[in-house]
Design a protein around this nucleic acid. Structure first.
Lengths: 187, 187
DNA sequence: TTAAATGTGTCGGATATACAACAGATTCAA
DNA sequence: TTGAATCTGTTGTATATCCGACACATTTAA
């Protein structure tokens, strides 16, 4: 409802911090990136960093979430529903995201990254499911459970692909997984 | 003497403005770039622009000067003198700079660009000449006149090259000009 | 082990920047 | 031509950010 435009300085500073972090993560592992590194690259004061983020782990969560969400929402959000096409698009977004990160390997953060991916997936999937619902028989509780399961399943598929089918094209691999995911949706 | 470090915000804002301007000038002609364009791209308030620059023409001068100076000083400054090699390097810096601009043609600004190039050249050449001087027989007056003439001459050469010898390699063309320039230095 | 160096997180006071509003200039279509 | 729209500079007030300093943790080297 109330829009409450946020101060341009805030938007700019957050962007500078996020961009710097993403940029640095292409050169170093997460564990080696310090707050000082980021603020120097972003040309902002260290104190300002703490005005916007609790600590560097908080930034990591938010930055990765945002990057992944941009990968996803560029296609999905506007009124589409959960079907073979949208599942494929999401799968590609995940694998691209994974690859953009694992150019550098980020030891010790595998679980964190996995959780972020699932969380973002769940958000998007829930939206897709809601778009496919009639107004009347809208069951939020059920959709939450379902989108949670689908998110785990889809992430799991990307994990399998990375481990055992890295040589295949992801577009092809996901086709063989889709039937099982669809089975969850149809009843 | 007194160093008086400048506020990080100032450095950052100037950089954002300059970068945005350079970036925009790759998409539009100078005449079509508004202050609003720049401040939106830079994510700063329009009033802040006027805190740092008199107007857009002031920015143009300073931005181009800086870009060109970076092209030049990366090589020259540290203790070199004016010789065939440094003349060649300067000539290449000019032609590269010209080409980076004339991807878009900037009608109505040819004279301004020419003047900026000569001014920056003069600064660098003066430094090179001073480096080659003995402490004792240091004649500032004479060096100023000489560096001014050399700057005009070198710019003129780049202009001739652009008009009539654009197909030749600039490294080659400048070789045939160097003798005349050197004649001014030797006595 | 110790000590020096570097990083973290927080504070109060100074200031560059955002915002909103303004009058005047310029552009542009009707 | 006229008027609507956009751009240019400028101003006063609110605030996000800077700076310097601090105590405490962590890393590094001797």
């Amino acid at each position: 409802m109330s829009e409450a435009k946020t101060d341009l300085r805030v938007l700019r500073t957050r962007k500078l911090i996020m961009d710097s972090f993403i940029n640095l993560s292409g050169q170093k592992e997460f564990r080696d990136i310090t707050v000082k590194d980021i603020t120097e690259e972003a040309m902002i004061n260290r104190a300002t960093f703490y005005y916007h983020f609790e600590d560097i782990h908080d930034l990591l969560e938010k930055a990765l979430s945002e990057v992944l969400l941009i990968n996803l929402s560029a296609d999905q959000f506007d009124g589409r529903t959960l079907d073979e096409q949208s599942i494929t698009d999401m799968f590609l977004a995940i694998t691209e995201f994974q690859q953009s990160l694992s150019n550098r390997c980020h030891r010790g953060y595998e679980e964190t990254i996995a959780r972020i991916i699932r969380e973002q997936l769940e958000t998007v999937i829930f939206q897709l499911l809601a778009n496919g619902q009639e107004e009347k028989d809208f069951k939020e509780q059920g959709l939450k459970i379902l989108s949670n399961m689908l998110a785990w399943g889809l992430y799991g598929a990307s994990d399998q692909w990375k481990k055992y089918h890295f040589d295949e094209k992801p577009e092809g691999y996901i086709q063989s997984v889709i039937p099982y995911l669809v089975k969850l949706v149809k009843e």
